[in-house]
Amino acid sequence: MPRPADTRPADTPTAPTVPALPPVADQAERLVALGVHELAGLPAEELRAEAARLAADLPGPGHPRGPGQQAEALLVVSSRLVPPSALAPLMRLPVRGGERSGFVVEDMTDVDDFAPVDGIEVPEGPLYLVLSPDRGDDLANWSPEEALPELARRGRSPLLLAEGVHWALQAPGVVADNHCYMTIGSRRRKDDGRLDSRTPAVWISRGTGRDGRERRGAPKVGWCWAGNRHTWLGFASATGRRG
């Protein structure tokens, strides 16, 4: 598929470097510090032990890399235990004089109904790893409908919304001005079986509309139409998942 025409201004700044993920053990400590284990109904020691088991089975230094990809692993608590609506308020971004907490946009009250699309198999355990996450900056200005087959062609799997929020918890700088990401592995099915036209994303509020000025600069979970293009949204993906 040819790349859609790039309509971004010529002076658009170079994408900021995607921050490296901490070791899996450190990610487990981060989740405990945020209280995610309590939301999941897991003792802290159980979360740590499960994270250690997963880390011990990680691919070695020979794990394949691709352009702009990191041979890393993101620790994720199953959304069956902690849905995106509970995780989103734990996101943080710095602003002048402090920081802003994350939120879900007001017209996405059904955020937890967004489920993996066909072809994505999520490990069954309480925790799992997402391998080599990539923000997909090079796909900015593609629509979700255009990006999904391209990711498949590259042998990559689109991130689920909960995975995208976990990434923001562990590496807040991955959500950057004009360089945010969609998580098109999650879609909501209507009663008739068809996909809802909305596709979820993680980006930064400008404090307009129903977001409110007090949320300017806050990380947020929102949505975009499946056929629309946005120059400031890439498509987050991974090489796979391991449980």
Rank of each mutant, 00 (worst) to 15 (best):
Arg8Tyr: 01
Ala115His: 09
Arg135Trp: 04
Pro133Tyr: 07
Pro149Arg: 14
Thr231Ser: 14
Val105Cys: 10
Arg135Pro: 00
Asp26Tyr: 04
Arg92Gln: 15
Leu74Ala: 03
Asn228Asp: 13
His179Ile: 01
Ala73Gly: 06
Val174Glu: 03
Arg3Glu: 08
Trp232Ala: 10
Glu214Tyr: 09
Val82Thr: 07
Leu21Ser: 07
Ala40Leu: 12
Glu29Val: 02
Ser197His: 12
Trp167Met: 07
Arg187Ser: 09
Pro67Met: 08
Leu159Gln: 08
Arg8Gly: 07
Glu214Gly: 09
Val122Asn: 05
Ala140Trp: 01
Gln170Cys: 14
Leu74Phe: 02
Ala201Ile: 08
Val130Ser: 10
Thr12Tyr: 04
Pro59Thr: 06
Leu159Asp: 06
Gly125Asn: 12
His63Met: 14
Val122Ala: 04
His63Asp: 14
Leu129Ser: 01
Gly102Ala: 04
Ser101Glu: 12
Ala71Asn: 03
Ser78Gly: 03
Gly164Glu: 04
Pro9Arg: 14
Gly155Ile: 02
Asp112Tyr: 13
Pro200Arg: 02
Asp134Trp: 15
Thr208Phe: 12
Pro123Ser: 08
Val95His: 05
Asp211Ile: 10
Val221Pro: 12
Asp110Val: 09
Thr183Arg: 07
Ala52Met: 10
Tyr128Arg: 04
Pro172Trp: 07
Leu151Gln: 11
Arg188His: 13
Ala44Lys: 03
Arg53His: 11
Arg48Glu: 10
Ser79Met: 11
Ser143Ala: 14
Ser79Trp: 13
Glu45Thr: 15
Ser186Glu: 06
Pro133Cys: 02
Arg210Gln: 14
Leu195Phe: 13
Ala171Pro: 06
Pro144Gln: 05
Ala236Glu: 06
Arg48Trp: 02
Glu150Ile: 06
Leu90Cys: 07
Leu90His: 03
Glu124Ile: 00
Gly66Met: 07
Thr14Val: 15
Val36His: 01
Glu150Met: 03
Pro61Cys: 02
